Every structure is written in structure tokens, then in C-alpha cells.
Simulated scan of single mutants.
Amino acid sequence: MFVSSRFTARRRSLAAASVATALALTLAACGSSSDSSSMPGMDHGSKSSVSSSPSTSQAMGDMPGMDHMASGNGLSDTQDGYRLTSKTAALPSGKQTTYRFTVTDPDGKPVTGFAPDQTKRMHFYAIRSDLSGFQHIHPTMAADGTWSADLTSLAPGSWRLFASFAPDSGPGKGKDFVLSRTVTVPGEATKTPLPAPAGSTQVDGYSVTVKGEPMAGMAHPLTVSIAKDGKPVTDLQPYLDTYAHLTAFHEGDAAFAHLHPTTKVTGDHGGPDLAFNAELPTSGNWRLFLQFQTGGALHTAALTLHVG
């Protein structure tokens, strides 16, 4: 997908910082969808579901669902003084529900000004702890800074909810944040095994192929090709100012990564090949969720990618 030059500049700056951090760690070590057919519970477009282990901060007397974990991968509710807050620690299963949250600034005040990122002021994701039940939502904000994210039916288990945003004023202006909290969905939870790494998958009659061998902590090109009935697809429509939106979650901890598109948008004629700049910070298996649009319909494909 495509972003503005200002957004791209911020992303490149963050990518450079991540690579430098990974190199430093390496040197230190040397010294010492509506449901998708590819995965149960996956949803397209504007709803979400996430699982994760119970919040350790809860036991310490914090607000329900609050997490204090490593920053930079979305596994924290706070970064640089900005905090994702919510009074909700549990959500019902089997029906549509709304998750309400607020982002506060270093002074503890609700943030109400956000810079558009791929046409939206807030991107919200939900993923179950076994990396099933993916939802990508664009919530709405009230005048007091309270956001409401409408989620489709959630399966019982632990879920992690991510908020991706960029303040348009204050000390965080011009910086991208990804913060998250966990919630529990009551009921008998059945773990869905993560599908084995594969180079291709099927969704809604489309074949999606991913080529590339990314290495942990390093920027690496990734190519996605889309076909239907054995023929290359060339009628992809822009979705969020790009031809495809690609996010990834790490097996085990559900760490978040957004893969940056580099293919230029030229009307409703995208495809069949889409280029991404993949920077996945940790080795292991990552579950990739690719969203693309044709004929006004949004499709969500999922596959597992192994990162060395």
C-alpha cells in the first residue's frame, strides 16, 4: 500500500533506527477478514480479534488489561509517555461488541489530535494469542478522545488489541506509535495450531504468493503476487492509499510488525506483483495478513512466513 511522502520519511527513519538497534544487539551477543478459508475466525476490513496471555500488570494492581512490556513491537501499553488506556478487561464471546479506549499524552491528558496515516487517524487490530481471528478496524473518536472499535464475534481465549497512530501535536508529533492491551473472552478456549510456513495461500478464489527470505532485524524486500484462475490479477483497487495492506504477528508473543509497501498506485490497475519493505525484528514464524481490494470487495489472505 502507499503512504504520503511525509509518512514514508517517518517510516524510513524508524526502519534505520531498528536496523541500528539490531546490529548493536548482535555485536553485544558476540561479546557475551469476514472469515477466511485459510484460518478460522479471520475477518476482513473493519473488525478485530486478538489473543494473548493475561496481563502481568493486573496482578500488580494496574488497570485491567494493562501491559508493561518491551516497546518497539507493540507489546506495551505505553511508550515515550503516551499510554493506551481502557477500563475493559473482558469482552463477550459469540457476538458483536465494542471496545472503548483512550490514548493519553505524557501529561496524562486524552489525545484528540491525530495525523492521518494511510487515510485514517487510527488503525486498530485484534489478534488471538494463537494468531487466529485477525481483525483490522478503523474506530471512531468522540470529542473527549474516547475511541470506539466495533468488533465482530470473538472466540473464547486471550486477545491482544493494538492501536496504531501518530499524534499531530505535542512531544510525539511526527512519530508513529503502536500500543496494545490484552482482554479475555470467557468460555472454553480451543487453540488453533499455526499453519506451517508456506509460500502461497488461497482466499476468495485468489492465489496469493509471497517471495523473499527476510532476516530478523534487517530490512529486506518482499514480493507478493496475486492471481485468479491461473491468470495474473491486474485490477487491484487502492485500499488505504495502496494496493495491499500487510501486517504480521510473531508466533508466541504476538509482536506486531507493519510491512511497508513500495509499489506506486496508478488507479484501479494494481497487480499482479506488489513490493514491500519487510523488517521483522525477531526470528521465528510470523503470521502475515494481506488485505487487498477488487471490485469494491475487500479480501484478507493469511500465511505463515519463517524468518531466520
Rank of each mutant, 00 (worst) to 15 (best):
R160S: 04
K173Q: 10
I226H: 05
L154H: 01
V111A: 05
S164V: 06
H138Y: 07
V103F: 05
I127F: 03
G72A: 01
T282D: 14
S55V: 00
G74E: 02
L246H: 10
P195V: 12
T263R: 03
S180N: 12
A248K: 11
A196L: 14
T247H: 03
R83Q: 10
L179H: 11
D268L: 11
F101V: 03
P116I: 02
D204E: 15
T242C: 09
G296C: 02
P54D: 02
H245F: 15
S36I: 09
S37T: 09
T294P: 13
S158M: 07
S153M: 02
Q58G: 09
L84K: 08
D229V: 08
A28F: 15
D43S: 08
A216Q: 08
S46V: 01
T234I: 07
H68D: 07
F256Q: 03
W147M: 03
S169D: 12
T184S: 15
T209S: 13
T78D: 00
V50M: 13
D241Q: 14
K231V: 14
P40K: 04
K211F: 11
N285Y: 00
P139T: 05
G157Y: 10
I226G: 02
V111R: 11
S51F: 11
P40R: 04
P40Y: 07
G108A: 10
V203K: 00
G170D: 08
S164G: 00
D235N: 14
G172P: 15
G271E: 01
T190I: 12
R12Y: 15
K173W: 03
D176S: 02
K211T: 14
N73S: 11
V183G: 12
T184E: 14
D67V: 15
A254W: 01
G205A: 00
L194S: 03
P106H: 08
G65Y: 10
G230T: 11
P110T: 02
G145K: 05
N277P: 00
P232I: 10
L305D: 01
L303C: 10
A275R: 07
A163D: 09
W286H: 07
T56M: 10
T262H: 12
T263H: 10
A90L: 06
H245M: 06
K228S: 08
D35W: 14
P238I: 02
I127P: 04
T234F: 09
I226L: 05
G108V: 08
S57K: 02
L274Y: 08
P92Q: 05
P193I: 01
T152W: 09
G94D: 07
L280G: 02
G308Q: 08
K47R: 15
Q237K: 05
D150T: 15
A142V: 09
G199L: 00
V3A: 08
R6T: 14
T102D: 03
G270W: 10
T242P: 01
A142F: 07
F124E: 00
M215H: 12
A20E: 03
K228Q: 12
G174E: 00
G157E: 06
L194G: 06
G145V: 11
L274T: 04
A219G: 10
D176T: 01
D62M: 13
K228H: 12
F177A: 06
W147E: 03
W159T: 03
R83H: 14
D80Y: 14
A143D: 13
K191N: 03
C30A: 06
G157L: 08
A142Q: 10
V3L: 12
T78W: 02
T201F: 13
G284V: 10
A149D: 04
R11D: 01
N285T: 04
P281V: 13
P214Q: 06
S76V: 05
W159G: 11
